[in-house]
Simulated scan of single mutants.
Amino acid sequence: MQEQKTDPALLRYVAFSADPAGGNPAGVVLDATGFDEPAMAATAAEVGFSETAFVVPQDDGTLRIRYFSPRTEVPFCGHATIATAVAYAERHGVGELRLRTKAGLVHVSTDRTPDGRVVATLESVPTRMAPVPEDALAALLDALRWPAADLDPALPPRAAYAGAWHPVIAAGTRERLAALDYDMPALAALMARHDWATVDLVWRETPVVFHARNPFPPGGVVEDPATGAAAAALGGYLRELRLVPLPARVTVHQGYDMGRPSTIEVGIPAQRAGGVTVTGTAVPLPG
């Protein structure tokens, strides 16, 4: 990672792992009062993580939160939300938080495990799903350099939303998922045209265990090690297509192919109107 200057307002956490060597790093500013948009963008670019979260406490007890990648603002970010909630709980105690994101109001609860770790659970905004147009799918597979024959026919391509849009593309084998070598400029241009945050590439190990990889070229990141927003979108996708018995608890393993193992727990309620939950821990980065 790039050298970073010391800023007492900026915290650095890893989400979806109890080991700082795993998970997805996120920057967190718990009180960004006085930060304007250029300052947020510049801070996120300097930190260089896939996202940095900026929190501004509101008079009604809610927390307004914005998420910036090194290149752009995103409406919602799951791993930075988990990191923010854990950082907040470590300083103010566990409990309930209400986050005002650009995607809508997100409820987050925190609690402590018997060994003292803080675990956070967010409830997504209502999920949605849309078809991926044939020409967009062809361009996506071409950018990924994935033949259509390598996809899992039981998990059809769809665009899924739980605060941000992610096309869900299922590989037929673990080997296909492991072989990620894509055309970054082509994929970035395609994602910009369709307003896709990341591409959620998945392989189904069992009905309730998935492995995922998430290219994130719009944010200037080749691959995200743990993507809570995409995991929530995957939960909505599985519910909408009735691909798991409901209610369901799904585990998503991500980051293993890039040496940053992450575990994301996804709760899928049976009610279509209910938000999908995403659970994980976070730990501070040393130094």
Rank of each mutant, 00 (worst) to 15 (best):
Q2M: 05
E3D: 15
A9P: 02
A9N: 14
L10W: 06
L10V: 14
Y13G: 05
V14C: 11
S17W: 09
G22R: 02
G23C: 04
A26H: 01
G27K: 05
D31A: 00
A32M: 12
D36S: 07
D36W: 09
P38E: 09
P38K: 06
A45Y: 14
E46Y: 12
E46P: 05
V47Y: 08
G48C: 14
S50H: 09
S50A: 15
A53L: 12
D60R: 05
G61T: 10
G61W: 06
T62H: 15
R64P: 02
F68E: 09
S69I: 07
P70R: 01
T72V: 11
T72Q: 09
E73I: 04
C77K: 10
G78H: 05
A85F: 08
V86N: 01
Y88L: 08
A89Y: 11
A89V: 13
E90F: 14
H92T: 15
K102S: 13
S109W: 08
R117C: 01
V118G: 02
A120R: 05
S124G: 02
R128I: 10
P131K: 03
V132E: 00
E134A: 10
L137V: 07
L140S: 00
L141Q: 04
L144Y: 02
A154P: 05
P156S: 01
R158Y: 10
R158W: 12
G163Y: 00
H166L: 13
T173H: 14
L180Q: 05
D181I: 07
M184V: 13
A188N: 13
L190I: 14
A192S: 13
R193M: 04
D195W: 06
A197I: 08
L201Q: 09
V208Y: 13
V209Y: 08
A212Y: 07
A212V: 10
R213Y: 09
P215N: 04
P215I: 01
P215R: 03
P218K: 11
V221Y: 11
V222T: 15
E223C: 13
P225N: 00
G228L: 06
G228Q: 05
L234S: 01
G236Y: 02
Y237G: 02
Y237I: 07
E240V: 14
L241I: 12
L246M: 08
P247N: 09
G255P: 01
Y256V: 11
M258V: 15
R260D: 00
V266R: 06
P269D: 04
P269G: 01
A270L: 05
T277M: 12
T279M: 03
L285S: 05
